[in-house]
């Protein structure tokens, strides 16, 4: 039996690869198709999993009257399409920003700052001897923070310390860039695997 899905996916992959030669109508067709299908899929999934499942069904079938409030706020958001009534959209935006900030600030402060500081404060000397890793971490944190200290000119001893911070930053950027190259190569290899194994069946 002909696997049309694989054939279409293979041809579209080749269409996208033609961009490597240069921009062309075949590439633009495949790109437009991807965008259209993605948006269509997103709308269907959102309608089914959110509007129907969390709003219409509970409101109509279960009689949860309280859901009229988020429904009303959601409808007010549509007032942005009218220049005369657009001020009404400020209310749901205010609710979103207020609740969003209220939820995010304590969570981020805890997870990104306090817990990370806690993990940095570790014994420099353990039963196994000098904890080299911990020393490097402490040195990296302090010198990098010194680099981002802008209330004083980066000269003298502060300049020398922040210079070490730059090296730590460079190591981080280099590692991240290396991993990003690895990731992009993996994506390419994954598609090549699909083309060679599933589409062209040149290898197992």
């Amino acid at each position: 039996m002909i696997d049309w899905g694989t054939i279409i996916a293979g041809l579209l992959t080749l269409a996208i690869f033609t961009f490597l030669y240069g921009d062309n109508p075949i590439y633009r067709f495949a790109e437009s198709l991807l965008i259209g299908v993605s948006i269509g899929y997103f709308l269907v999934i959102t309608w089914q999993n959110t509007i129907v499942s969390l709003l219409i069904k509970p409101l109509v079938s279960d009689g949860r009257i309280g859901l009229i409030i988020p429904l009303g706020l959601g409808l007010l958001m549509l007032s942005r399409f009218s220049s005369r009534l657009s001020f009404l959209s400020r209310l749901p935006i205010a609710v979103l920003i207020g609740s969003g900030a209220g939820v995010a600030i304590p969570a981020m402060l805890d997870a990104r700052t306090l817990r990370q500081i806690d993990a940095t404060i570790a014994p420099l000397w353990t039963d196994g001897g000098l904890a080299i890793g911990t020393i490097v971490v402490v040195l990296g944190v302090l010198t990098t923070l010194a680099y981002f200290y802008f209330s004083r000119a980066q000269t003298g001893s502060l300049g020398r310390i922040s210079q070490i911070g730059i090296y730590f930053l460079m190591v981080f950027f280099g590692t991240t860039f290396g991993y990003t190259v690895m990731s992009r190569m993996s994506t390419f290899i994954g598609r090549m695997e699909f083309l060679l194994v599933d589409f062209l069946r040149l290898t197992q």
Partner: peptide, 17 residues
């Protein structure tokens, strides 16, 4: 995660989060 994201998550792994 994808390789590009590993360095973003390493601190969370090191801290036990």
């Amino acid at each position: 995660v994808t390789a590009a994201m590993i360095t973003s998550y390493d601190p969370y792994l090191a801290s036990g989060q």
